[in-house]
């Protein structure tokens, strides 16, 4: 792999940061803003890291947005029923994990296309979330200790940033340093070859989808904690951005493979662009156009770097 194909995307991030710093040295380049960006990207990073597990399988999970929304609604509803913080969090995470396990199991055993299976699962989860919440935004009965999980600082670093760091380390560990992670990547590389080499395809697939929605549920909890409220479609916007980050990540560090460090980099690019353009006063819709162009550009550069020896 050439330097360009390995580190091109990272160079891109550095260039974008340099550009914004030059354009608005007083507001963008301030250390407090840079810290702020790490906080802004944290939830996106967590959802995208979860998506990285299923991307390692060369599959998709389109239910992540709905699971983020669900986690917020379920936890706040449980608080309303008088549950303690820890049981409510554990039940919500378990529920998130199960959603992916069910999708993964059906995908692996019945060879359902993951695109369709998880689209349906996301629709079901979204409907259930509306049902639980009656379509309303929930903001009462949220304990302050729970809210602290999503706001405040530890040693001067936003807690959300710390959660994202923890999620990155966990995803790195699983994908690169466990048998499960290597098996997921093997299945993603060539399912039949992996199966014939004795890789337990069903088990690995269930784990990957389970971890994916577990991360989404964790992000949903943190979102509710940060906002102090939960909206039944509050997390839906994460779906496309998470896959944008993960795709950007596939252009970095590894030869077109999903990888945790790359996904973090992808999330950073998206967050930096959003933050920088907002500071420059560029409207939201132009930010989306820029993000789309950056994804196309990154893939193009990677492909050119790969074909030229």
């Amino acid at each position: 792999m050439t330097f360009l194909s390995r580190f091109g995307t990272l160079v891109g991030l550095v260039a974008i940061i340099a550009l914004f710093s030059a354009l608005s040295p007083d507001s963008f380049a301030k250390p407090s803003n840079l810290v702020n960006i790490t906080q802004q990207m944290s939830l996106l990073a967590i959802v995208a890291l979860g998506a990285t597990f299923v991307m390692a399988l060369s599959e998709f999970d389109l239910s992540v947005g709905a699971v983020v929304s669900m986690a917020g609604i379920v936890s706040v509803t449980l608080f309303g029923l008088g549950w303690g913080i820890i049981p409510a969090i554990l039940v919500t995470l378990a529920l998130g994990f199960c959603v992916g396990c069910v999708s993964g199991f059906l995908i692996a055993t019945w060879r359902m296309p993951s695109f369709i299976m998880t689209l349906a699962m996301g629709t079901i989860v979204g409907g259930a979330t509306f049902w639980i919440s009656d379509g309303a935004t929930l903001f009462s009965n949220i304990p302050a200790a729970f809210r602290d999980l999503g706001r405040g600082y530890l040693l001067g670093i936003p807690v959300l940033t710390l959660w994202a760091v923890a999620a990155t380390l966990f995803a790195l560990l699983v994908l690169d340093h466990t048998e499960l992670g290597r098996r997921m990547l093997a299945i993603g590389g060539n399912r039949e070859a992996a199966r014939l080499t004795g890789v337990p395809v069903v088990r690995s697939t269930v784990w990957a989808f389970g971890l994916c929605t577990l991360f989404a549920a964790a992000a949903g909890l943190l979102l509710a904690a940060r906002l102090g409220s939960a909206h039944p479609t509050g997390g839906n916007g994460f779906l496309l951005q998470a896959y944008a980050a993960a795709f950007l990540g596939m252009t970095a560090f590894r030869d077109g493979q999903a990888n945790a460090a790359g996904t973090l980099l992808g999330a950073a690019i998206i967050a930096v662009v959003a933050n920088g353009l907002t500071i420059l006063g560029v409207p939201n819709y132009l930010q989306d156009i820029f993000t789309g162009l950056i994804i196309i550009g990154a893939v193009l550069v990677r492909n050119i770097a790969r074909t030229s020896p």
Binding site: R182, R183, L185, A186, G189, N190, E192, A193, A194, L196, T197, G198, V199, D255, G256
Partner: peptide, 18 residues
């Protein structure tokens, strides 16, 4: 090519898999 090795993966990954 199609059911033995994972062609786009590294030599290391392929040797280590089983």
């Amino acid at each position: 090519r199609n059911s033995g090795l994972i062609m786009q993966h590294s030599v290391l990954d392929n040797v280590v898999l089983p």
